[in-house]
Nucleic acid binder design. Sequence first.
DNA 1: TATATTTGTAAGTGATTACTCACTTTTTAT
DNA 2: ATAAAAAGTGAGTAATCACTTACAAATATA
Lengths: 173, 173
Amino acid sequence: MTEKQDKILSSALELFANEGFNATSTNQIAKKAGVSEGLIFKHFKNKKGLLDALYVQVEGKLGAGFTQIIFETDPKKVLKITIESPFMIPHEDYDFWRLQFKLKWESDYYNPEKMQPLIDKLAWAFEELNYETPEMEAKLLEQMIETIMVAILRQGKESQLAYKDFLLKKYEL
Amino acid sequence: MTEKQDKILSSALELFANEGFNATSTNQIAKKAGVSEGLIFKHFKNKKGLLDALYVQVEGKLGAGFTQIIFETDPKKVLKITIESPFMIPHEDYDFWRLQFKLKWESDYYNPEKMQPLIDKLAWAFEELNYETPEMEAKLLEQMIETIMVAILRQGKESQLAYKDFLLKKYEL
DNA sequence: TATATTTGTAAGTGATTACTCACTTTTTAT
DNA sequence: ATAAAAAGTGAGTAATCACTTACAAATATA
C-alpha cells in the first residue's frame, strides 16, 4: 500500500463516514487526498472498490476487538470487558465505526452474523454464572452494547458513562 | 393535500426508505408517482423539501405511537405496552420507520430529544414500581426497544419474538 | 545503462443530476 | 359565464457524476 493509496482510503473513510457513500463524489475524495481523480480508479477500479477496501479494514478492526474477549477465561471478566469495550474505542477510530453502523443500512453490506463470536462467548459466560436463559441474556447484552456504541459515536463517551456503571452493577461486576 | 401530492410523497418515502435519499433521483420519484418531474418542484420546492415533508409525517407517527403509553395510569401496563409496541407496528408503516432510523444518521434530522416523553413516562413507571434508579432503567428499556425495532425492520417480527417474552418475564409482567 | 512496469496526471467522455421555464389544463371564486 | 389561480406538463438547462484515455514521470528489473 503506497502513501497515496493510503491517503485516498483515509480520505474516503472520513467522507463516507460523515457524509455518506452516495453523497460523496470521487472528485471530493481526490481533492481531499491531494491526488488526481484518475488515480482512484487506477488503484480501486471504481467507487464501490473504495468501499470494499474500507469494509475489509472495518471487519479487521471488529475481529481484533473480539480477540481479547474470546480468549478471556473468567466469565465475569468477559462481561466486564464487553461492557467497557465501547468506552475503550480511541477517538481516531470513530470514523471507522460510524461507517460500520451506516453500512448496516446499506443492504449489500449488512451481515448480522459478524457479531456471532461475541454472542457465543457471552452466552458461555452467562451459562457459567448460572443465568436461566444464557443465549437470550447474551443477545440482549450484545444489543445493548451496540446501542451504547451508536450513542457514543453520536453524542460522545461522557453521555453514556452512567450506563457503564449501571450495567456493571446490574451484572454484579 | 391533493391526490398527486400524496402520490409523490408516498413514492418518495418508499424510495428514500429503501434506496436512500441521495441514491434516489427526482426522476425515479416522478415515474413511480406517475407525474411529471416538474410537479415535484412545484409542490415541494426542491428535493430536500420532499424529505422535510416526510419528516413531519414521521414525527407525527412517533407522537401518535406515544399517546397510548402516555395516558396509561398503571405502571406495569406502561412497561408492557412499551415492550409490545415494536411488534404492533403494521407492515405498511415499515417504510416510515426505516426512514426514521436512516435519518438518525443524517445530522440535520437527528434529534435525541424526540424520545423524551416516552423516557419520562417509563421513569415514572419504574419509580412507581420501586426500582432503585428509575431514570436509568427507563433509558435502558427505551434503548432496548429501539434496538428491537431496528432488528424487526431488518429481520422481521418473528426474529425478535423471543425477546418480547424474555423482557416481559424480566420485568415480571 | 536500457527497458519494462508501475505510479501518476490532466483533459476529456457520455450519462445523469436537480431544477427551471414556457406553456396548457383544471379548478375555484365572483 | 368569466377571470384568476392553482395544478400539471415536458422539453430544456448547466452542473456534476463516475469513469476513461492518452501520455509523462518515477521506479524496478535486467
